[in-house]
Design a binder for these strands. Sequence first.
DNA 1: CATGAATGAGCCTTCATTCAT
DNA 2: AATGAATGAAGGCTCATTCAT
Lengths: 218, 218, 218, 218
Amino acid sequence: MSASTPDQPLSGRRETTRRRLFEAAVTLISEQGYGATTVDEIAERAGVAKGTVYYNFGGKGELYAALMEWGVTRLTDTLKGAVPPPEAGASPREALSAVLRAGVVFIGEHESLARLLMAEAWRTNRVWYATVLQIRTEAIGVITGLLDELAEDGSLLPDLDTGLAGSALFGMVVTVALDWRTLQPERPVEEVHTALARMVGGLVGPAASSDRTSIRDS
Amino acid sequence: MSASTPDQPLSGRRETTRRRLFEAAVTLISEQGYGATTVDEIAERAGVAKGTVYYNFGGKGELYAALMEWGVTRLTDTLKGAVPPPEAGASPREALSAVLRAGVVFIGEHESLARLLMAEAWRTNRVWYATVLQIRTEAIGVITGLLDELAEDGSLLPDLDTGLAGSALFGMVVTVALDWRTLQPERPVEEVHTALARMVGGLVGPAASSDRTSIRDS
Amino acid sequence: MSASTPDQPLSGRRETTRRRLFEAAVTLISEQGYGATTVDEIAERAGVAKGTVYYNFGGKGELYAALMEWGVTRLTDTLKGAVPPPEAGASPREALSAVLRAGVVFIGEHESLARLLMAEAWRTNRVWYATVLQIRTEAIGVITGLLDELAEDGSLLPDLDTGLAGSALFGMVVTVALDWRTLQPERPVEEVHTALARMVGGLVGPAASSDRTSIRDS
Amino acid sequence: MSASTPDQPLSGRRETTRRRLFEAAVTLISEQGYGATTVDEIAERAGVAKGTVYYNFGGKGELYAALMEWGVTRLTDTLKGAVPPPEAGASPREALSAVLRAGVVFIGEHESLARLLMAEAWRTNRVWYATVLQIRTEAIGVITGLLDELAEDGSLLPDLDTGLAGSALFGMVVTVALDWRTLQPERPVEEVHTALARMVGGLVGPAASSDRTSIRDS
DNA sequence: CATGAATGAGCCTTCATTCAT
DNA sequence: AATGAATGAAGGCTCATTCAT
């Protein structure tokens, strides 16, 4: 159906409806889980009739799949947007720190989506697993790319498997961020980011301590 | 009711039935999720009649709860058992490495349980959330305890929030291990553990070297 | 409402739309049944938007009713038109044969309508049952009329209940014709008609063999 | 499922339930049509819960298909049982008459089933069309068999296509019988059968007399 | 005249749970 | 200790109908 093109201008009557449904669905599903959330609830929260869900998406599963895709785009766009452009002259370590910050901030602002993502991350035989995998792959790809640059730079732990390291950092960031939102929501985001950045700093080798900016090194 | 004591000798007819149901349930639920797994499926896979589930556990939810508890015990016992005893004379850093290895190995052998755990980790309004949280807390507690020892030792990043760091390491280990099982199951467990241990070495301490004099070196 | 007069000149834009809808509806409904055919399907096959069905007919039921009436008219007109006029000097037997041929040919050309008719023929508590009954009554009336003439003529099996016989011949013709279209569509229509005519020939008694024209009898 | 073996002893609890559902379904569906009959109605009339329909048949469609098969068996068994055994010394013509009577009587006693059968007879793209076709084929087969005997006997119209003639007689009998039940239910069954038998005598043989010398008479 | 997005009552179906055996 | 037929509340989905454009 036309459900697979969420990147169109969301201005027409139909697109307004679709966005409303998205927003209602993320929240409800992330709180209750997919199975425990009913189409009635989603429709009611979105302020439309139940049939409208079916008219626009074809079914509950398709709505969820479309939702995932919609979320993907947002997350990867955010992460990619956080990588400092070459002309900014940022060090790889700074770039990594910036991406981590973007990740933490994003999760802070889109908790629901992040919870959803983790709940489905290793549930391999759901129909939308491919989509979820793709999201994670793209997000991790941004991190792995930076680690590769650091490796070439020589300022990374030698012989680190950057693929595995990317996955590890991803899991670390998401876990820390969700625990923060769930267990200590009052803590300022900067505190969380700082702690993470300090830990990750250890990865880049003794030469790049956090008080000496490494810009001139690059 | 007697259904909540799975730690008895599993030898009688009844206990055989219970174990079969456990095993059927972990696998199915970890693959499909709690909501998408039916009691019929569980009973069929266990080779018993549907009524037997109710006779033995009282309901689907209770089976799941018992399952979680069963899993918890196994995980925390494993992790605690991996901490080298004081008389072994292992360094805190070695102890941490041993615990991480135990974690990776455990996940490799109890994939289903791990998938389950992550799927429920941040779904706060489920009835068994308390149980899940407890598991994670205990597991993270083991890690945090070691980090605290490292801190006293001076061989840790100064002023690191060990609670947050424990959560970070936990997420990192689980993520890496599940990605390994899901995407590269043929990879030997030792390889995964080695890569992970090296990273963690970098994350928690300023020096990548494993001896105790690292602080002075920086 | 103006929707119930399908006998107008079908030339304007509106009438074109109406005819398209008719044709789409007969086919679909005869294949799938009334209940299993959706307004969406009809509109799609007709190449118009769904709302157009309502604009033109007021509803699914009304479309179906109009359809039936359209069919009735065609069938009875055809059968009546097939009765040789008195001035043609045809024997009643020839007249009967001509009507049977007309029936078979009509069904061959309007399969869908015939299937529809039989599907509804004895479903007495549908709203359009009256219409269906009327069609059958008129069609059977043409046959019964001829049988009555034959009876007066003395060239019919004595004491035959012409009402029942008309119903029997009607059922015979429709059944044979639909079986022909459904199971042996490649068979030429003449073959079917000949076989039927020979069977019916037995009804008119030994005096009226098909090689001796009965004109002088009348 | 086990739904496909309706010929088992209908004595257990389950089989009692199944028969009840059958009886409820034939009546309702024959009156209202498949689409207009709800599972709720069927279950209520059968005196069981709605879920029981699904437990026993798997779905509305499957119930209907099983129903058809159940009906088939009854009809063909009846017709076959009506054929006089060779040792009875009945003439083929008498045998045909006996079968027709059996058909009329059966329809009189199982109106609903007959209405159902005709409603689906030429609706070729329903899932159960194959079943319906099979029923009709078997029933017609009994008639055709007798016609073939008549043909060998010489007491049939020469060169008559017995397949087509069987179809014709089947349609005739069903049409007459259903019109009788629908429009003149008070009429005694014998009257209907007598009229029918006289007609058929005329249709299939050149002489209306029941002795074997008819050919010479013409 | 025609459109198509939106609606909501009604229906089919699923599935956790019960209970007589 | 186990079974499996039966249950019925709950939920996903269909589709005839409406109406603003």
